Simulated assay, not measured.
Amino acid sequence: MLNIIWLVLIVSSIIVAAVTGRMEAMNQAAFAGAKAGVTVCFGLLSVLAFWMGIMRIAEKTGLMELVARALSPVISLLFPDIPKGHPAMGYIMSNMSANLLGLGNAATPMGLKAMEELQKLNPDKQQASPAMCTLLAINTASITLIPTTMIAIRMQYGSANPVEIVGTTLLSSFAATFVAIVIDRWYRYRTNRRYR
């Protein structure tokens, strides 16, 4: 469906540009947008590579294991359906760590691996399990301590103070995560009452 929406937008913009005689402006805008996209991607690659390297060092030195141990009571509370020591827990921890550092792109592969592991535990393969829904809610909202991607984009576009968004990002992401957890718990409670 999303592909159809994009196709309609592209075709309609070409038609409007042709009818209004602004094809040259449309072409310039398309090339300028493509150039900006490539420039931003190269800037983000360096930030992503840096933080992935930091995460790899943290993993090799055992720091990630310490963080996982410290957060395991919270994770166990959020995901009571997952058995202790299951591989899904490690992927969930990696996903959350990447999100904490504002590395949404780095968090995605770990989130997908966590979903694969959670699907193995899922008794109904046609419907998402409660643990899968919780992971999706937390991953989508995710508390972000350091919004590295946004800082990199702001630096690339010449912001005078690219890190000034840290406080507001932390506050808004904390609020979003809190609301996501509350709604997730409410739906779990409602579902459990319905099937009793």
Rank of each mutant, 00 (worst) to 15 (best):
91 Y>E: 12
83 P>V: 01
62 G>L: 01
83 P>G: 02
92 I>W: 02
93 M>K: 06
94 S>A: 08
56 R>F: 12
82 I>V: 11
90 G>L: 09
75 I>K: 07
55 M>N: 09
66 L>V: 07
56 R>W: 15
59 E>G: 10
79 F>V: 03
52 M>F: 10
52 M>L: 10
83 P>A: 04
86 H>N: 06
49 A>C: 08
66 L>K: 15
48 L>Y: 09
57 I>W: 06
80 P>G: 00
50 F>P: 00
58 A>R: 05
65 E>A: 14
66 L>E: 11
60 K>A: 15
67 V>A: 12
87 P>A: 04
93 M>D: 11
92 I>P: 05
62 G>H: 01
79 F>K: 09
60 K>D: 07
61 T>A: 08
66 L>A: 10
77 L>E: 09
54 I>G: 00
56 R>T: 14
62 G>V: 01
79 F>L: 04
71 L>N: 08
94 S>K: 15
82 I>P: 00
84 K>L: 08
48 L>S: 13
56 R>P: 00
72 S>F: 08
83 P>W: 03
69 R>D: 06
85 G>E: 10
78 L>P: 06
85 G>L: 09
61 T>H: 08
88 A>G: 04
50 F>S: 06
75 I>G: 02
68 A>P: 00
57 I>E: 03
52 M>S: 13
65 E>I: 05
81 D>R: 01
60 K>M: 14
70 A>Q: 06
92 I>M: 06
79 F>A: 02
89 M>R: 15
94 S>F: 09
92 I>A: 05
71 L>P: 00
71 L>S: 11
74 V>E: 01
64 M>E: 13
75 I>N: 07
86 H>G: 03
60 K>H: 10
57 I>V: 09
60 K>G: 02
74 V>H: 01
76 S>K: 13
65 E>W: 08
51 W>M: 11
59 E>P: 00
66 L>G: 07
54 I>A: 08
50 F>T: 08
80 P>F: 01
62 G>W: 00
49 A>V: 14
60 K>V: 10
89 M>F: 14
58 A>N: 06
60 K>F: 08
57 I>L: 10
49 A>I: 15
86 H>A: 02
84 K>N: 11
52 M>I: 12
86 H>W: 03
70 A>T: 10
53 G>E: 00
81 D>T: 04
73 P>I: 04
70 A>P: 02
82 I>R: 01
76 S>R: 15
94 S>M: 13
66 L>R: 15
63 L>G: 05
84 K>S: 13
93 M>L: 03
81 D>Y: 04
92 I>N: 05
